[in-house]
């Protein structure tokens, strides 16, 4: 650390903010999970492991598993759709790039919840998508498009795709496209050049995308609540249920702590990976 004292002082307000409003509340949540629940929704006296024991309820592994695979699938699909878009944008003329960027952030001009409700309307048995699919003979008239994990996955990918395109584009924009020529020159087909040179070339963007898609999706609550059914809950819905319906704060806290641990694991893995990559490349490029 070669930072001077003055620079440290500059970061004091933001550190204090994070400490008071982020770290301490997190620890409080963690602490509450070890308290008994009060009979009228409050927090009881003393300390207990009862709440943590109750997490062994067999319904939880299924919900955690669903949360994990939905998050992983969303991340993979967002990267799969985002990479070609980022590649194409990086090769466009600056004027077209700006138009594309505008189109990608255009959905943010409409409220998030409204867009999810729009999906519910589209996927509804009388909705446009269902009707078109049935007309084309691609869907059974009795098929249920809404209230299942696939509807959640569809809307999650829709919602998080811009968040994957932007970091991938930022990485692709810095990519030296001469490297693709070099790979082609050395015998790689277009596809092989893309995977053996372009994908590693934007690895910093891939890592960012993983962090900013996978982690928020783990904690998503509104999307499964609106387009998913009771049989396709994610962990976020369970936490909300415990808080608002059951008024069992210790139980909600324990679930939140589990989620936080699940989030921390890939985050730490990402940090370690980044450090390792930084060392391997001589720390030349910032992520």
């Amino acid at each position: 650390m070669k930072k001077s004292r003055g620079q440290w002082i500059l970061s004091v307000p933001s550190l204090a903010w994070l400490l008071a409003l982020f770290l301490i509340p997190c620890l409080l949540v963690f602490a509450v999970s070890f308290r008994p629940s009060g009979p009228y929704g409050g927090i009881g006296e003393g300390w207990t492991l009862e709440t943590w024991r109750s997490l062994t309820n067999p319904s939880y592994p299924a919900i955690i598993w669903r949360t994990l695979w939905l998050s992983a699938a969303t991340t993979v699909l967002c990267i799969a759709f985002g990479l070609p878009v980022a590649y194409a944008m990086a090769r466009m003329s600056p004027a077209w790039r700006n138009r594309m960027l505008l189109l990608i952030i255009l959905p943010f001009w409409t409220n998030f919840l409204i867009r999810i409700f729009a999906w519910r309307t589209l996927l509804h048995p009388d909705g446009l998508i269902k009707q078109v699919l049935v007309q084309l003979g691609l869907a059974d008239p009795n098929a249920q498009l809404l209230y299942n994990s696939w509807a959640i996955l569809l809307v999650l990918v829709y919602s998080y795709l811009p968040f994957s395109i932007l970091p991938l584009y930022a990485a692709a924009e810095k990519f030296d496209f001469n490297l693709l020529d070099a790979a082609r020159d050395l015998g790689a087909s277009r596809l092989r050049a893309f995977f053996s040179v372009f994908v590693p070339g934007v690895s910093a963007g891939l890592l960012t995308t993983f962090l900013i898609v996978f982690i928020p999706v783990l904690g998503s609550y509104a999307i499964p609540d609106i387009v998913g059914g009771p049989s396709s809950e994610m962990i976020g819905n369970k936490i909300a249920q415990r808080v608002f319906n059951d008024r069992n704060l210790p139980h909600a806290s324990a679930l939140s702590a589990v989620l936080a641990l699940i989030v921390l694991t890939p985050l730490l893995a990402g940090l370690v990976l980044r450090r390792w990559r930084g060392n391997a490349t001589g720390g030349g490029r910032a992520a």
């Binding site: 001469n178 020529d181 790979a183 082609r184 020159d185 790689a188 070339g201 490349t281």
Partner: peptide, 20 residues
């Protein structure tokens, strides 16, 4: 023929070495 099917190889101006 595309570049990958030619018995011709190139030393590029700015080397174009693969950084990874």
């Amino acid at each position: 023929q595309p570049p990958n099917r030619r018995p011709i190889n190139t030393v590029f101006q700015n080397y174009a070495l693969f950084p990874h």
